[in-house]
Simulated scan of single mutants.
Amino acid sequence: MKNSHEIIPYGRQSISEADIQSVVDVLRSDFLTQGPVVPAFEQALAAYCHAQHGVAVSSATSALHIACLALGLGSSDWLWTSAITFVASANCGLYCGAQVDFVDIDPRTFNMCPMALEAKLREAQQLGKLPKVVVPVHMCGQPCDMAAIHALSVQYGFKIIEDASHAIGARYKNEPVGNCQYSNITVFSFHPVKIITTAEGGMAVTNDAALANKLVQLRSHGISSTPSDMQARPADEIWNYQQLSLGFNYRMTELQAALGLSQLKKLDEFVQTRHVVATHYDEAFKELPVKTPWQHPDAYSSYHLYPIQVESSICGKSQKEVYQVLTHAGIRVNLHYIPVYRQPYFERMGFKPGYCPHAEHYFKSSISIPVYASMSDEQQGRVVEEIRSALL
């Protein structure tokens, strides 16, 4: 293969001249922080998702945090999320003083398993420890079984935040992820390795106007300048803003929003290209001792990630051995994710290895291989060749 020493990352951004110009235009404008581009990006993304409101923030982590606060999560409450996710899906509950717990995954989709969730809810109901908020994570870009999870929320009374950090551009039952048909709030990430990027940044979308108003306040120090929100003060004093609650500086800048608005125009194209790469991998790995990602018929993945599972009993190679061989060859594979409860911080809370068996099996067998919209045929071919060499 040509360029055999080229480093191929597991993910990367695709930036066009139009994207660059959109940022330059803002640099030459009157507003760098809070101007007209942020609300334009919010409205465009909400419209894409068929949602009523979008609230742009500095990261998906900050979106998760203020989503929890807007739903009233506090020190006496529980938040549950998937065992396989980035730590932010759990940390958002801890930021609110709540306790967190984890639900095992469906071994086919790597998403929160509705049956495991139902069993855990039955037990928690008996103990008086039902969650106030559940955070399903659309792992790798494939939507969770949201209809089943929503039905359980009706039965057991919890709120739902969809962590769709991987899933902008994905669809569930032929509708865009983010329409909030089965949730209170959906959160997206625009980190550079995600489908579209704002450098750093995120957004929360919702169909609830009151929740959207809370999110807007919380992202900016709890401050409002809306007359209907503000409390009466002496008529001879100037009150053009009021802090109504304890909020944060989680705002998105005009520069980030301009990049996001430009990238949004190419979102469907990016997702379609990722599907082409995934289909190539599916075919190339048919005869190799790995399991490729299974896709639910109700879901259209954004393919943020493409994890393979090494079948060590067949190839005689461990996951770690394959990982190391590929890394040495310049294929920057990754691991998404270590079960959150296995992290030292969470183990100090009392969590033990083996808590979620399917999550543990996934952790010990999976490797995320490169997938991004600008991957060339040559790069894809080299990834396949190096994986074949590492396994055989």
Rank of each mutant, 00 (worst) to 15 (best):
E6F: 15
E6K: 10
I8H: 03
P9Q: 09
Y10R: 05
G11W: 02
I15C: 06
E17K: 08
Q21A: 11
V24P: 04
V26P: 01
Q43A: 07
L45S: 00
Y48C: 00
V55L: 13
A56Y: 05
S62P: 01
L94F: 06
A98V: 04
P107S: 10
R108C: 12
N111T: 11
C113D: 14
K120T: 14
Q126T: 12
L127G: 15
L130T: 00
V134G: 00
H166V: 14
R171W: 12
I185Q: 04
I185W: 02
A199N: 11
A199W: 02
G201Q: 02
M203W: 03
N207F: 14
K214Q: 09
L215D: 01
Q217Y: 01
E237A: 13
F248S: 03
R251S: 14
E254K: 03
G260Q: 07
K265W: 09
K266N: 08
R274C: 02
T279S: 12
A284P: 06
A284Y: 13
S301P: 12
Y303V: 08
H304T: 03
S313I: 07
K317I: 09
Q319G: 14
K320Y: 06
E321C: 01
Y337H: 13
P339S: 12
Q343F: 14
G350K: 03
G354C: 08
P357A: 06
E360L: 07
I369S: 02
V371S: 01
G381D: 09
I387N: 01
S389N: 15
L392F: 12
